[in-house]
Design a protein around this nucleic acid. Sequence first.
DNA 1: CGTTATCTGTCCATATAGTGGATCCATGAC
DNA 2: GTCATGGATCCACTATATGGACAGATAACG
Lengths: 259, 259
Amino acid sequence: MTDGIETASGTQVVHRVALLLRAIAAQEHGATVAGLAVTTGLTRPTVHRILLGLSAEGLVTRAVDGGTWQLGPELYVLGAIAAHRYPIRELAGPSLTRLAETTGESAFLSARRDLETVCLARREGAFPIRSHVLHEGLRLPLGVASAGLVILAHLPDADVERILDATAGARGAWGRQHTAKQIRRLLEDVRRDGFATNPGMIVEGSWGMAAAVFDATGAPAYALSITGIETRFSADRRPGLGRALLTESHRLSRALGGE
Amino acid sequence: MTDGIETASGTQVVHRVALLLRAIAAQEHGATVAGLAVTTGLTRPTVHRILLGLSAEGLVTRAVDGGTWQLGPELYVLGAIAAHRYPIRELAGPSLTRLAETTGESAFLSARRDLETVCLARREGAFPIRSHVLHEGLRLPLGVASAGLVILAHLPDADVERILDATAGARGAWGRQHTAKQIRRLLEDVRRDGFATNPGMIVEGSWGMAAAVFDATGAPAYALSITGIETRFSADRRPGLGRALLTESHRLSRALGGE
DNA sequence: CGTTATCTGTCCATATAGTGGATCCATGAC
DNA sequence: GTCATGGATCCACTATATGGACAGATAACG
């Protein structure tokens, strides 16, 4: 009933299950029933009932405190099995470590999923002031944050326009500055430099830089990125950071692609 | 409708989704609609409809050939996010490599899930004759295969009897020899040796040995195991193999437990 | 310490969303 | 050619999920 904007024929509950799992994953410290009801647009009883079903399957669990819901062991198990066809996270581990160590900033691996990027892994850097905008499970529309910029920039022009169109609303939620015009300007920078720079567009003073990772088909499927405070991204430091990102992303693309 | 033996109140489709995902995961090279209908007990149209729903969410995909279904990228992403609360697979990587290298056999990581073990990771050994009974995603009832034996052996006696009872039927499907009596005998060996030995109970001539890994609560949650042909598990070689398994499993338990 | 606010969990009448038998089509074996 | 197998689709039927309403639990407040 409810929205119905895009209830693909077939199974309503399947869609809702996916919606809930994504919403739970996006919550860093567990999700509440009421919170999930709001973010998914479902009613509380429905959220509750589906969560009970999911927890009976082990796909979600309640945190020890009893209140909040988290992704469960069964989901981990299924993901681990799927992982042997998607080895990116394992392959990216050393790259993240090197990036965090050589730059001192926090390093991230993100994956493209349709119109969004999802943060898959985080490695803390040594520098004591850290941005906590990005975390595992967070989804951002393409075009938002350096990872979303660099992936967008490597897509065919026609796709870029379509995606800018489709994500206009979602981008707005992450800051008024994310207009199509402003994004296009940042994409030009990517085409010049090879890497993307996010000059504090989401949170003022919180910068990011990213390089794209290409899968075996040559599509920009993942991104490596680093984040930190503005003063750590001075004009004389950026080229070096960009080179470090590009080095690691090339290495990863090679590992995924032609072996 | 159909069986209804254990349709927990609430959501039928959630259960069916989980059923299908597990069934797909258990198929090494992708699953067919008809095959899934048989193994899950659902009708073909139902399987087909739910698969379409799942694939719209990216939770499953069709293989390039177009025929078979596999776990999809979204499931991998969710699993990767869950993984930061369940770091076992990452932690176990080096142990599997060492086991495969020092013993020459194939090494496996399995996780306990309720009444079953699930194979999570596999590392090939150098020895050219390899058993392919076990693979990522395969679920076996507790008590079957060395991993299922060693986990069962470390559970409280009351649980052991309950589980032996509950899995009697499922065990039978993996070989007539898996009687409660026979399992109890093998469990005694585990309590003496610390590791489990499966003397070709599933496939004649295919042996296995396993050691348990304990989580932070002290429960036997995972197992490391190796498999190979009978002649590689001679009486004089077994103590050394057992020691190697125990060394690695202790190391892993420590990594999961303390601090 | 009663009042208000918030959130979890449960009930149940309702109708919507899912079901599966039947059918058609594509492919391949013989 | 026939037959067998499996994928895909249709649609009448009703079993299943839905969500408004309510009860219980916990915390915040004046």
